[in-house]
Computed example of a mutant assay.
Amino acid sequence: MIRVAFLSRPGLMDPMKPLLERELPGVAVASWPEPAARDADIAVCWKPEAGALAAMPKLKLIHAIAAGVDNILSDPTLPDLPLCRIVDPGITSAMTEFVLWGALYFHRDFDRMISNARDGLWCRYDQRAARDRRIGILGLGELGTAAAVRLVELGFAVSAWSRSPRRLAGVQTYSGADALDAFLSETEILVSLLPLTPSTVGLLNAERLSRLPRGAALILCSRGEHLVLDDLVGLLRNGHLRGAVLDVFEQEPLPAEHPLWREPGVLVTPHMAAIASWEVIAQQVADNAKRLLRGEPLLNVVDRVRGY
Rank of each mutant, 00 (worst) to 15 (best):
A147E: 00
W101E: 01
L293V: 13
L143K: 06
L299A: 14
V245K: 07
I189T: 13
V301N: 07
R3W: 05
L299F: 06
A40P: 03
R291D: 11
A177F: 01
H226S: 08
E263P: 11
I281V: 15
P264N: 09
H63C: 10
A50R: 04
T145A: 14
A130L: 08
A286I: 09
N71D: 13
A146I: 00
R38N: 07
L193D: 06
A103L: 14
I2G: 01
H226Q: 11
G90F: 05
Q283P: 04
T200K: 11
L203A: 07
K17L: 13
V152N: 07
S222R: 07
A216L: 03
M95K: 02
E279M: 12
V27H: 04
L204E: 03
E23L: 06
L292A: 05
R237E: 13
L83I: 14
R163N: 11
I189G: 00
V285S: 00
R124W: 14
L220R: 03
T145D: 13
L218Q: 05
L203D: 03
L235W: 02
R112N: 07
I135K: 01
P10L: 15
E49Y: 10
D303Q: 02
W278V: 01
D70R: 12
R223E: 03
A179N: 14
G120W: 09
V191A: 00
D132K: 11
D132Q: 12
A52E: 06
E23C: 10
L292S: 05
A147G: 04
V228T: 13
Y125P: 04
G170N: 07
F6M: 13
Y174T: 07
F249L: 05
W101N: 02
V191F: 05
P18Y: 05
L229F: 09
L293N: 08
S162G: 15
Y174R: 11
A52N: 10
V27N: 04
P18Q: 04
W122P: 01
G11A: 15
D75Y: 06
V268F: 03
E207N: 09
S199P: 09
Y174N: 04
E279Q: 14
A216V: 08
G136K: 01
E34T: 14
L143V: 00
V44M: 04
L19T: 12
M16C: 09
G215F: 04
A129L: 12
P82N: 08
T92E: 12
W101Q: 01
A274H: 00
D230N: 13
A67H: 02
Q284L: 05
L61H: 04
G307N: 01
A216Q: 07
S192Q: 02
C45A: 07
D88M: 04
Q172R: 13
D14L: 05
A67Q: 04
Q127A: 12
L209S: 04
P297W: 08
R3D: 00
P264K: 10
Y308P: 00
Y105A: 11
M16N: 06
P259T: 10
A28D: 10
A147W: 08
A43W: 03
Q251V: 09
L193G: 06
R128G: 09
E296N: 06
